[in-house]
Write a protein that binds this DNA or RNA. Structure first.
Lengths: 111, 111
DNA sequence: TCCATATTTCATGAATAGATGAAGTATAGG
DNA sequence: CCTATACTTCATCTATTCATGAAATATGGA
């Protein structure tokens, strides 16, 4: 992954609504979610959501497909993997172990 | 890790100078780097660098220690690990395998 | 004490991001 | 076709971020 793509993805995720949205889509997995479902579920103004979905799409983190009157969004796991790979491999000074003991590590519940 | 901390860290990293700085510090490891060394090495205006170092510090990704006339900065690996953990565990819908095959994965050289 | 060095804080202006109502586009169904 | 639904795009305003010169602060040494 290139640095510019990484920065694009990082800034896409660094936002309350977008992070919530991304998480909801990740949870939904291959089923994806309709824009309207997300707007209702997360109580977001449809226009605001649409703008933020566009930013996530542009970063390559999600993609969309029309479905009847609605538009269904899906997470792009590959891009997220690439980002995590970039952060661990490239940003941790070639010593991934410094920053990436993701295998084990305590799994606390967060919100 | 809490969502607000994650957003703070993500936006701290989502910036050209700050990402470069963070990478340089990660490479330096426990030796850390003086602010001046980084400014010279990366050709960054000292004021600009200082502002960006403050942002990284505030996000908990680095910390500083005075050393004579200079100030030496160090990466906070723990916070970076927490961020990566948050992204994989919390954002990938409780199905980390979706986004975190960091163990294997092709290690291409990036810039 | 006085000065040079190293870095930060302050102040300011320019650029970018963010939210949202109104208007536009696409689709389904009568 | 006509209308309702589901979204997006446009236009606009506000808020935040960014970069940087000038001034302030801290330290070391003569």
């Amino acid at each position: 992954m290139e640095k510019t793509s990484a920065i694009l993805a990082l800034s896409a995720l660094a936002h309350d609504v977008r992070l919530d949205t991304f998480r909801a889509l990740a949870q939904a997995g291959d089923d994806g979610l309709l824009a309207g479902e997300m707007a209702r579920a997360l109580s977001i103004n449809p226009t605001t959501l649409s703008n933020n979905l566009k930013i996530l799409s542009h970063a390559g983190l999600i993609h969309a497909r029309r479905e009847g009157r609605g538009i269904r969004y899906f997470v792009m796991a590959e891009e997220m993997r690439a980002l995590l790979g970039y952060l661990t491999e490239d940003c941790c000074g070639g010593r991934p172990e410094l920053c990436a003991p993701l295998a084990a590590q305590g799994t606390e519940k967060t919100t």
